[in-house]
Nucleic acid binder design. Structure first.
Lengths: 345, 345
DNA sequence: TATGCTTAAGCAAACGTTTCCATAAGGAGG
DNA sequence: CCTCCTTATGGAAACGTTTGCTTAAGCATA
């Protein structure tokens, strides 16, 4: 039924080894044989069996993306699609296939990963935004599997990772508001177990301190990466006796929730409350008003993660002393939501 | 290094075949042997080599998703992420892995598909929204590979597909506007080579005709699934001497563009122009005003596609006479963007 | 007691590659 | 003319499974 290397060999009057060598561009194959075998492969419609190849070479030319545990919430985010797009594009350029894996629980997730890696179905893994203490990282590290973390681990600093400098990004976002004349600035954070939430919070704190501004604990609220969290944060802030005049918000989606709430209460942005958030998803510029956002180059993050992982798998970049933390630069996109100086009121 | 079936066999004092049979739950294995082998597998940390298994069983327990050619544009859409999420969730429940594949050009795409299927890396494929004339469909059909199309083919009606009844959906959307009292209704379409664009256009036409309303060709504009297209369509419509009072828009993203444009020109929705669009992405309800949209159950589409594909692969549902076109029901979500009756002006 | 059936397990081939080792032919050097 | 090296190719083992065929033992039946 399917045509194998042996069929080609028989038809070409050579041995299977020769065909295999033609396939892999072995130097000691005569030009003539190579030409003949290739034309016969073409003619017979030969396609190498990837499984057989993998079995003997112990390499699969594929990697997997491990989606974070609460995939149901986060997955539907534009953010992840963009990341995946970057990964898939780069991997495909390097001749690698990409497998998507997710599990409902941490246990399931670990099972999936261990099945894929131990079962030798993939050569390495890309982890998207791990929690503070991540069993999957421990698993990968303990077993010496190649992997790259998109994000940052606070437990290990010797693992390969691609990340935004979230502390600096939050520092920049906050500084921007301060430079616009804001002094009472609040912060809407994400789940406290995500490192990204903590880093951004820290950057906000530093910026406030460096500028000698008061850091009220009631001006910091935690939530999820969901619009509802923004909605709730907004009502909390607006009911405060002493309210902030501006907000740094941990994610654009959350900003949408804030915006909707303010809208319902007939407040206007940025006059009543200025906003800056993170990730610059395509819709940030479409909302009314458009939201100022820190663009973190999501596609680029994914692209780079894939590149580094594949290099590692191919052992091209394993020189000790090499850097293992790659920072993708961010930049602030100023839009209407932060174009207001409270001093000029 | 890695522990194989033979290692387990040796340690358990049985033959490799016996271990294999324990693994697959063969009936003729004594309870005692099974227990012993299982405990030894556990103890030694045995994981089956998926490649070896695939090689002999000629089955990979994985499927691939083929993203449409202009992936760069469409990929970043919430829409695709939601679809993928449905597919991955279902596949994972059925014990299947999911591979994502995309190509920059149609040729690359075809190469990728043929490598995956002919190379026996996957058992089947899910195609997302093909063009009118799709070489990939021909390839899959000609070679008899199991595949499911999310969307509709106008060339073949005997291929497995999961789809929205887009004609009916557009009919419903248009009827809704008509029932609100609109008579001058325009249509913003997508790329004319996408079947979904044509079906929705057709549904709009039918609804207009059935209600005896005038169908002006200048009230139909084509574009991409991009906000820019909406923006352009809006300026076209608003400069018309006789403008529509309502628009049916082929995708929510496009509606965002319309909305932004109207906003800039200080028109209000729905008073100056009512809107209904399709797909009901999460942000539709967050815009100002929230957009009425046809929810087509994207996750459900993906989930069902995966289910059907895997059933087909496993030959469980191959009885002839079975339906091969699965329709996922849609429903109209009415929001502020269409809550206005022009008659009551 | 001989026969046949059932159950539990082993042997070995097969899946489609890659790759180490061997070999044959041709040419250069002595 | 013999030896040795180079170049092109073939043979066969190995990768880790699954599975059809075989075998051995235990037991019931005639």
């Amino acid at each position: 039924m399917t045509v194998t290397i042996k069929d080609v060999a028989r038809r070409a009057g050579v041995s299977p080894s020769t065909v295999s060598r033609v396939l892999s561009g072995h130097p000691r194959i005569s030009a003539e044989t190579s030409r003949k075998v290739k034309s016969i492969m073409e003619e017979m419609g030969y396609h190498p069996n990837i499984m057989a190849k993998s079995l003997v070479s112990k390499t699969t030319n594929s990697i997997c993306i491990i989606l974070p545990k609460p995939a149901e919430e986060l997955f539907s985010n534009l953010f992840f699609m963009e990341l995946i797009r970057g990964i898939v594009t780069q991997a495909s350029r390097s001749g690698y296939d990409v497998l998507i894996s997710s599990g409902a629980t941490e246990k399931e997730e670990l099972e999936a990963v261990s099945r894929l890696l131990k079962g030798r179905r993939v050569d390495g893994a890309i982890l998207l935004y791990s929690r503070k203490d991540d069993a999957v990282i421990d698993f990968l590290k303990d077993n010496g599997y190649p992997f790259v973390l998109v994000g940052r681990s606070d437990k290990y600093d010797d693992i390969l990772s691609v990340d935004t400098d979230n502390m600096l990004a939050a520092y920049d976002a906050t500084s921007h508001l301060i430079s616009m004349g804001h002094e009472r600035i609040g912060f809407v954070s994400g789940p406290p177990n995500l490192i990204v939430s903590r880093d951004r919070l820290e950057g906000y704190r530093k910026a406030m301190e460096h500028n000698g501004l008061e850091l009220k604990s009631e001006w910091i609220v935690e939530g999820e990466f969901l619009q509802d969290s923004g909605y709730r944060a907004m009502s909390f802030f607006m009911n405060l006796p002493s309210r902030p005049t501006a907000l740094v918000v941990v994610d654009d989606i959350v900003s949408f929730g804030v915006l909707r709430g303010l809208n319902e209460l007939n407040y206007t942005v940025p006059a009543d409350l200025a906003l800056v958030s993170f990730n610059n998803i395509p819709l940030s510029e479409l909302s009314t008003p458009p939201i100022s956002s820190i663009d973190i180059g999501i596609y680029h993050l994914g692209y780079t993660a894939s590149q580094i992982l594949i290099q590692t798998i191919q052992k091209q970049a394993n020189e000790p002393g090499c850097t293992n933390r790659f920072i993708i630069p961010h930049r602030l996109i100023v839009r209407e939501s932060s174009m207001y100086s409270p001093g000029k009121k």
